[in-house]
Structures are given as structure tokens and as C-alpha cells.
Nucleic acid binder design. Structure first.
Lengths: 331, 331
DNA sequence: CTGTTAGCGCATTCAC
DNA sequence: GTGAATGCGCTAACAG
């Protein structure tokens, strides 16, 4: 009937009229078929076909207070490190009928705060953030919003709500222990300037027991910045033996620069990365790195959120997924 | 721990009461300050602070028919190839106050059709899809929805609405021409089984003038699949001279396998990838590949969508961003 | 400049 | 099983 190309979209009202039933019956036939007779369902289904009806989730969500959306904040979607998490999160949510709204904070706290505000205003059924939320304003707003929140890729004994991650202090400490166990004493760090990398550095220093030469590069780190970082570190200590890098990209840059300077890896210089990127096993030499199960983080975050949405009790609101050092040829 | 299940959120109504103004005045003070006196704005602003009000965009969108969301469909977010596009798109949209809803089709047409339905039901102000939409059902539904659509990473003279991409036939043809120009005659193709890669292959074959040995791997392609693909191709032609790979990941795998078999690159075997991934310039030897400006695709798609949202006329609804062969050491 | 009146499209009460 | 009201929270229209 209303087949004019006018932008007047067809609503449930049109479907109900077409099917000769009331609005609410049409609604139930579509989203709650158990409550309606087979015959009516068939009639409504035909009417949907005939009218080309596509439900308006916004309108439904307004009343039911369910948006079927989850907001995810990452520092930078182009940073490969968080991709497995985003992918696993998207897949798990999608299977439950939820979609992801993406936001990039750019490693910027002010930006994160603003973005959290926008996200809350969309009334998602859950919010996943990368890292811990440090801003008290944001923490308060999130709490008052009542929206389930999962902080990921880090751990806290006092999360806003829930958390899935691992201890960056322990990572730094473990790599330092690994280096020391190898007998290396002239150590160095090449690190991005983001929060979590800094914490890994602190863990490293604590275990080493003293400060070490450090090259800091702006996040997100990259191969090019890694080359620069090695130049930096060699200027600080020409006889440096082992370097802990805050990402595999950075480590790769350090390796490239090392080779360009005629340094042998690992004989002259040992290198450990972070993240176990897909290329880490295939560089030459292959890269020793800290492996983190980013996909699990995403899957677990989704499960926490979905459980919460179903009103189930959360047995364990803080989950440690751990990490492990994968030793390859670069050490 | 114990959260009240229904923390009745503060609404604009509360703000209006607190500020002693009417609902609509509060609304305007927040989202249309030009229409309200300075004094009133200040009063409302104070009330917002006092109540901790965060607007509900869903409710506003219902009436104003603007969701300030754009849906983006990619085959797989973990495939690095589309990341620059997603990033540029997110950034450009965010600057205009729009957020991105992400969907993954998994290179599956049925899944894409279903996902498009879900996305339409969220009434986004725009939809960006990767590749062309081939399903007639989807094309019709999109058209009827009246939502602006940008098809990306490909071109069509008959787009659903708008398109930003390049010709995959021409890419295949250009690489074939490049190979032939080098004097290579025993050619091969290692390709993912997705639509666009297949079209590149067809372009390649047309220019070569005859069929060539082809190893097909399931998308998304990877380094591991590349190793397999080379084994495949060598079985078909042990004296193959040059291979066109449908992704840099695949090309990297071919290179690794070639080296494992004692083949010299490019003397024994020349390799050309596709996409110019960040690692392509840093493999050993560095990888010749087809460079595409993925970020531009995202930026242009955002611009088209935003212009359309502002009701502006679109001068050029189909934009060709082109491509170029970056010659490196692998050829 | 400000307020009143109507809804946006649907789902949650209740009735029948 | 089905239906009639009622409003979710907000904003276009018009008024004043």
C-alpha cells in the first residue's frame, strides 16, 4: 500500500494494520512469538514481508531500556595489539544479538573522559574500556549510570565494576627476572609513553633493583620509533646487552636498527618484545616476547557483560588471564 | 558489589525542575544554546552539574530522526588491510559527533545480509560497507531504508548509493603488465577466495592472455596459508618465476616458504603482494606490493556521509582513489 | 526568548 | 490469546 518512495518508513503500526491485528500483537508475534498463536504469527510474518518492515530498535530500546549495544573504547583501533580482543568481543556479542560501538581514546585521558560521556548518552547495555579508568569524574559517572563496565588489559583491586586483564607489574618483573637469569646486567628499556607500558617498566626496575637506560617514544609505538629508540639507548650505553620493548612493533624496529649497525642478535644484543604479534614468530631472528591472550580478554569481557545483562550474579568480577614469556631466537 | 538494579536515571525533566525552567528550554540550553539567553543557559548548566544529568541520545534520536551513528561492515576487523579505513572513518565521524557501530561479515554473504538488517534496525545515519553489495534483497532494503550508503574498497557504475574505491580488475591487469614487462612468463597466483581478490585475478588473467597456476586459500589469508600456497603452486609448476599474491600476509608466507626451500628472491622467484601492509617495506627482501590508500577511503566515505546528512548535494557519488605498484626488492 | 502541545515507534503494564 | 491504554525521554512544531 504505502509503496511510495517517500522517506516515511513503515512502522509496526503499518504491519499490524496489514495483518489485521493490534499493534501489540504484531509486536509480540515478532519479538515474543511464544505468546501468540501460530496462525497470527503467520499473518504477521506475511504482513512484514508485504510492507518491508524493519523494526526500529531505538524506539523499542527506549521503552524496554535495552539498547542491545555495547560500547568499546580502545586507544587506537589501528594498533594490532587490541585487535584480537575487539574481534573476540564483537563475535561473542554478535552471537547474543548485541552490536559494538567503537571509540578511540588516542591514549588521551581527556578524550577518554569525553568519549565515555558520549557513550553513556547512548545508553549501551555495557561498556568495555581498555585499561583502567583513572579519572574520578569518569568513575563516578559510570557508577551512577548503572551501566555494567569491564576494564580490560589491566587489573585493579578496586575496579569501577568488573575487570579482565593481567598484572603489568608482574610482566615487567618477569622479563627482568628472565634477563637477569640469562646473566645479562647491562639492561635497557624501549617504551611507549602510555600508562600500562610505564607500569611494566616500573615492575622491571623493581626487580632489577636500580634504574636502567630508557628510551621513551610516543604511543602508539611503531617500527620506525623502535629504530630511533635503539639509537637513543646506544647513545646512553654503547654496551647495552638486553632491551625490553613495550611492543613487538618497537622490538622489530630495534632489531632492524641493530642489524643496520652490525649488531648480532642475540649475541651482541638480546631483545624481548610485548604482545606476541602475529609476525613475532617469523622475524629473523624470531622474537622473544610476552604473550597475552587478547582474544580471551574479549571473550571473557563479553561473558561478564552478557551475564550481567541477564541479571545473573557474577561469581568473579575480576579475572586474571595471566601472561607468559615466549622464548625465541632474539634472546 | 551490590548495585541497585534500577537507579532511575536523571532525565531532562529533573534538570528543568532544578533550573526552574520548562523542559524544552532546558533541552535548548543544552543542544541549541543559540536560542536561549545567557542567563538561562548558566542556570541550566548548573542544574546539569547538580543533577549529574547525561542526555539520552536514543530518546532524542527517536524524535529528531538522527541517531548520530554510522554502521560499518568489514569482513573481519582482525584483518589489518581495512584498519586504516576504519580508523580514518572513526576519526572523521567522531570529529562530527558521530560514533561507529561495527559489524563483521566474515566474508559471508548470508551473514552480511543479516547484519545489514540488524544495522538498518538501529537507524544509523549512514552505512559503510566493505566491497559492493551484491545481494538484491540487501540492495532493495538499503534503498528503501533511505539511509545513505557508501560501498568501499571497490567501484561500481551502479552503486546502491555512493562508492569510494578502486578497480580490482585494473590492479590485476597492472600487476600482470608489470610481470610481463620484467620478462617473466611462468606466472602464478596465490589468492584468497574472496570476491575482490577473484576479480583481481581475472584482471591479471585477461592481461596475461591465458590461465595461470592458481592456489586458492580461504579468506582471511595469512602467512601460514601463504606457505601452503607456494607448495601448491610449485607442485603445479616447479619452474614458476613470479607470483601475484592477494595480500601481503600471503606474500610473506610465500617468501618464508621460498626461503625454506632454498629459492632466492627475486632471482628464482619474484613476488608481488597486495595492500602495502606496514611490514611490507621491512621484510627481507622488502616486498613489492600494490599500495592502496585505505585511510583516504575512510576519510572520503565519512565526508560523503556527513555531506549527505547535512543535506548537501553530492557532486561526485563515486570516487576512484586509485592504487599504485610499489616496487621493492622482491621483484 | 520561552512555554505548551504533540508525538517519535515501540513495549510494558494492565484488562478482557 | 489478544487488546487498550500509557509512557520511555526527548524534541519539532507552533504558539505566547
Amino acid at each position: 500500500m504505502t509503496d511510495t518512495n517517500a522517506p516515511k518508513s513503515v512502522t509496526l503500526h503499518d504491519v499490524a494494520r496489514e495483518a489485521g491485528v493490534s499493534l501489540i500483537t504484531a509486536s509480540r508475534a515478532i519479538s515474543n512469538p511464544g505468546m501468540v498463536s501460530e496462525k497470527t504469527i503467520a499473518r504477521v510474518r506475511l504482513a512484514v514481508e508485504a510492507t518491508g518492515y524493519i523494526p526500529n530498535l531505538l524506539a523499542g530500546g527506549l521503552k524496554s531500556r535495552k539498547s542491545l549495544m555495547v560500547a568499546a573504547l580502545v586507544p587506537n583501533i589501528a594498533v594490532a595489539q587490541f585487535l584480537p580482543t575487539v574481534k573476540a568481543l564483537t563475535d561473542a556479542l554478535d552471537a547474543a544479538g548485541y552490536q559494538l560501538i567503537l571509540g578511540q581514546t588516542g591514549y588521551d585521558h581527556a578524550r577518554e573522559e569525553a568519549l565515555l560521556g558520549t557513550m553513556i548518552s547512548r545508553r549501551p547495555d555495557g561498556i568495555v574500556v581498555t585499561g583502567l579508568i583513572h579519572s574520578q569524574v569518569s568513575r563516578d559517572r559510570l557508577r551512577r549510570s548503572g551501566i555494567p563496565v569491564v576494564e580490560t588489559w589491566d587489573l585493579s583491586d578496586r575496579p569501577v565494576d568488573m575487570a579482565v586483564g593481567f598484572s603489568h607489574v608482574k610482566v615487567g618483573s618477569a622479563v627482568a627476572g628472565f634477563f637477569l637469569g640469562k646473566g645479562w646486567r647491562r639492561l635497557g628499556i624501549a617504551t611507549g609513553d602510555d600508562q600500562r607500558a610505564s607500569v611494566r617498566r616500573e615492575g622491571f626496575l623493581t626487580t632489577v633493583g636500580h634504574d636502567v637506560p630508557t628510551a621513551v617514544v610516543p604511543a602508539p609505538s611503531s617500527l620506525a620509533l623502535g629504530r630511533q629508540a635503539l639509537a637513543d639507548l646506544l647513545a646512553k650505553d654503547p654496551h647495552i646487552e638486553a632491551i625490553f620493548c613495550s611492543s613487538d612493533q618497537l622490538a622489530q624496529g630495534v632489531m632492524v636498527e641493530a642489524r643496520a649497525r652490525g649488531l648480532r642478535i642475540p649475541e651482541d644484543l638480546a631483545i624481548c618484545g610485548f604482545g606476541d604479534a602475529d609476525f613475532a614468530a617469523h622475524t629473523d631472528p624470531s622474537l622473544t616476547t610476552v604473550q597475552v591472550d587478547g582474544a580471551s580478554i574479549g571473550t571473557l569481557a563479553a561473558r561478564l557483560l552478557l551475564d550481567r545483562c541477564r541479571g545473573e550474579a557474577i561469581a568473579q568480577p575480576v579475572i586474571d588471564v595471566g601472561f607468559r614469556i615466549v622464548e625465541r631466537a632474539s634472546t
